[in-house]
């Protein structure tokens, strides 16, 4: 059976938009939950931001953030939400690549592949 290319293109759109929506809503929910925990765990602490002193290591490295988030440390939970937010556009690029491959649009598989390589290089390189 032949699938109409127009239909496939529309389904890529649906997948990408659903992915973006799921990503931002999950990030928002986790961040919000972390925010509530924060006000419970630090009801009276004042944080000061007028001079920069880098965040502690436990809020800077993905593996530690994830571990502390599961221990329900409020700021790590928020940071985990931010990680989900950052991952959303990256996943969007990967999903578009799959979408273009299903459409057999090889030029765009190549183009999206370049974007993905640059993105992963700058994130992990």
């Amino acid at each position: 059976m032949k699938v109409q290319p127009d239909k496939i293109e529309r389904s890529t759109k649906v997948v990408v938009s659903k992915l973006l929506r799921t990503g931002v809503l999950t990030a928002a929910a986790v961040t919000f939950f972390g925010g509530i925990l924060f006000f419970i765990q630090h009801p009276n602490t004042l944080f000061s931001y007028d001079t920069f002193s880098s965040e502690p290591a436990r809020l800077r490295y993905v593996s530690i953030i994830v571990r502390e988030a599961f221990l329900l440390k409020s700021r790590a939970v928020i940071q985990f939400g931010i990680l989900i937010l950052i991952a959303t556009p990256v996943l969007r690029v990967i999903f578009s690549l799959i979408g273009f491959a299903i459409e057999k649009d090889w030029i765009f598989v190549f183009i999206t592949g370049i974007v993905m390589t640059i993105l992963l290089f700058s994130l992990f390189g």
Binding site: A27, G35, F38, E55, R60, Q79, I82
Partner: peptide, 14 residues
């Protein structure tokens, strides 16, 4: 580099 602070980011994201 430690530029992303959770307490500042939380209300901003939402």
């Amino acid at each position: 580099r430690g530029y992303i602070d959770p307490v500042l980011s939380m209300p901003v994201v939402l």
